[in-house]
Design a protein around this nucleic acid. Structure first.
Lengths: 132, 132
DNA sequence: ATTTATATATAAGATTACGATATATATAAT
DNA sequence: ATTATATATATCGTAATCTTATATATAAAT
């Protein structure tokens, strides 16, 4: 049985992945040791965990769904990859290209608009109670 | 090129159709001429027009998408049909079964929850400005 | 006459997401 | 020693879903 959240996930995966990658994340210069923030760089497993944590387990991004999307985004020129060895294992980091950043912003905005349209279509109230 | 609204439509079609059918609509007793309201009864073409009008053309439900869903919902016992001749043409009306009404309510509620989750995941503000 | 609007429906094809599976290392518990 | 858990990438087959194109037909409008 498909979870009720994942039923609606169809079509939003790209948007979720691109948005997560736009976020500023802590980093450090390995030579100088100086800490700073920079635009995201995430590896596959990390993305699935981030989605799980933020949605308190409501949305589960399976690997079978994730990797095909990552590969497609890379193919489309929205992501680049760098593979690094971390603790004996290879880890593949994904980073947004400038075009990827642009598409990410566009897609999030499109999704907001879609939610408004759906709220109207389904005659749903604007949600004040659960404001974050 | 796929419209940005329709990109996110996947997974929401059943919910939209079921919800529209839950709505009270004007009707009349053909014998007595008395007007009243009753739970929806819509035909396919009417559904596509209702979606188009309410979303100001942002969401377009194609027939190729609509009919398979209607047939499936009927098969699943959520809808029943009655065919009538109107102005020389056959028209097929779809009505919710009691189970269909139940599923409709559940799906709309699931979708609201999904939107909340997505708003959180994408760090979107609660939308006050466009409240309907 | 022809186009537009109304109306139902199927077929072909592409896309998408999921479950299962394979591979591999590291660590913690039994 | 073995088992389990967590981390990590990736493919394959399948099922479901959606898009586009097509067929059919009537009525009204131009």
């Amino acid at each position: 049985m498909e979870s009720s959240a994942n039923e609606f996930l169809r079509g939003t995966l790209k948007t979720i992945i691109l948005k997560l990658l736009t976020e500023q994340r802590p980093a450090s210069d390995e030579l100088s040791g100086v800490s700073f923030t920079r635009q995201g760089r995430m590896y596959g497993y990390e993305i699935t965990q981030a989605v799980k944590e933020r949605t308190k387990g409501e949305i589960t991004l399976s690997f079978g769904a994730l990797y095909p999307v990552l590969h497609k985004l890379e193919q489309e020129g929205l992501l680049t990859t760098e593979t690094e060895e971390v603790e004996g294992r290879l880890r593949k980091y994904y980073t947004l290209t400038p075009q990827g950043t642009q598409v990410a912003v566009q897609k999030v905005s499109d999704f907001e608009r879609f939610m408004d349209t759906m709220r109207h279509l389904l005659q749903l109230p604007v949600n004040l109670a659960t404001g974050h």
